[in-house]
Design a binder for these strands. Structure first.
Length: 333
DNA sequence: GCTTAACCTGGACGC
DNA sequence: GCGTCCAGGTTAAGC
């Protein structure tokens, strides 16, 4: 079960008990995927093992840094061996090489980002978690979003029983407690003052109101949008008070399998103005401009435009020095 | 249909 | 130490 030794990156001893999965033909750049701003709850420990929560499972994953074709080492807690959950979450069914070829033909200027972050994948996140995590994103910083979302889970989620809790870098030797993301029922009964104390600020009452509204529709309403078209899902989401076009696109792309969704935030806007639509520079981000920018990505990158924009987005983040991990790609090792 | 201000808050920055 | 600005947006009012 344990891997062979590697001189470049010693296999962490903490991987004892982990499984090994060969990513044959399905590259995965673990660090780029988990640090590219899709999800705010994954953390790396001192041995560079990534720890997160998928649904009701705590998950540990490790891969040799900058080697998207190297094996993935993984384990789930408290129920071990749930590979199907990990494969689904990281969307390993998607053939990246075919996408790279098509994107490069359509827009050669994406080549550097593809090379730097080869194996970056979009996640298939639980819809409720994605919906509320990105509620926190408005006028906020990534560090604060991560803190707010983690505190929300700790306050209103359920602790996960991990039989052999991993130590995490920030607190060596301390047992790490994992929490599920809160249910709609828990969020509907949340205390606004507590949320404000957790840095949710003016977003706090909106979170509670949205949870109550979603419950009134159906506990499974968000997940049911996976069966809808992109246009239908986007329209349904933006009809909710507090959900604009950008947030709707984040949920569509990161949780609802709408691969053509392009969340136009400040970074994606700047990239599009620089590469595709310089004539729109100086224009306010009205709904019409938002659509024009997103359509520009879709016109070039097709039905997986949302994946392509994630590469450009992450490259822009790194340029802006807004990333935390210096070893996200092979070039960085 | 576009522009603007308000909404929380902590960190970076200039003075 | 203090003031100002900014950060992965959304909404409503005013024009």
């Amino acid at each position: 079960m344990l891997p062979s030794h590697s001189d470049r990156n010693p296999i962490p001893s903490a991987l004892s008990g982990f499984h090994r999965h060969e990513l044959t033909g399905r590259p995965l750049n673990l660090s780029a995927t988990l640090a590219s701003g899709q999800n705010f709850r994954w953390r790396q420990d001192s041995e560079r093992i990534w720890w997160g929560v998928i649904g009701d499972l705590a998950v540990g994953v490790w891969q040799e840094a900058g080697q998207p074709d190297s094996p993935l080492f993984w384990q789930t807690f408290p129920e071990p061996g749930r590979w199907e959950v990990i494969a689904d979450y990281f969307r390993l069914e998607v053939d990246l090489e075919a996408l790279y070829a098509a994107w490069s033909r359509a827009e050669p200027r994406i080549a550097d980002a593809l090379t730097a972050f080869r194996g970056l994948r979009l996640l298939r996140q639980p819809p409720v978690e994605c919906f509320f995590a990105f509620q926190c994103a408005a006028c906020n910083t990534v560090v604060k979003i991560e803190r707010s979302v983690s505190q929300l889970a700790a306050r209103y989620g359920e602790p996960l029983a991990v039989s052999r809790p991993p130590a995490v870098a920030a607190n060596p030797g301390e047992e790490r407690i994992f929490y599920t993301f809160p249910t709609l029922e828990a969020l509907a009964q949340a205390d606004e003052r507590a949320l404000r104390a957790d840095l949710w600020g003016y977003r706090a009452p909106r979170v509670i109101a949205l949870a109550r509204h979603l419950l009134s529709l159906s506990p499974d309403w968000l997940a049911s949008l996976r069966q809808a078209s992109y246009a239908e899902a986007h329209a349904a989401l933006t009809a909710l008070h507090g959900v604009g076009a950008k947030l709707a696109d984040c949920i569509c792309l990161f949780a609802l399998d709408k691969d053509e969704a392009v969340p136009v935030d400040t970074h994606i806007r700047q990239i599009a103005l620089r590469l595709f639509l310089p004539d729109l520079a100086g224009k306010s981000l009205t709904p019409r401009v938002y659509s024009a920018l997103a359509d520009a990505y879709r016109a070039r990158f097709g039905p997986y435009a949302g994946w392509a924009q994630q590469y450009l987005f992450f490259a822009e983040l790194r340029r802006a020095d807004a990333y935390r991990d210096p070893a996200l790609s092979g070039a960085a090792d």
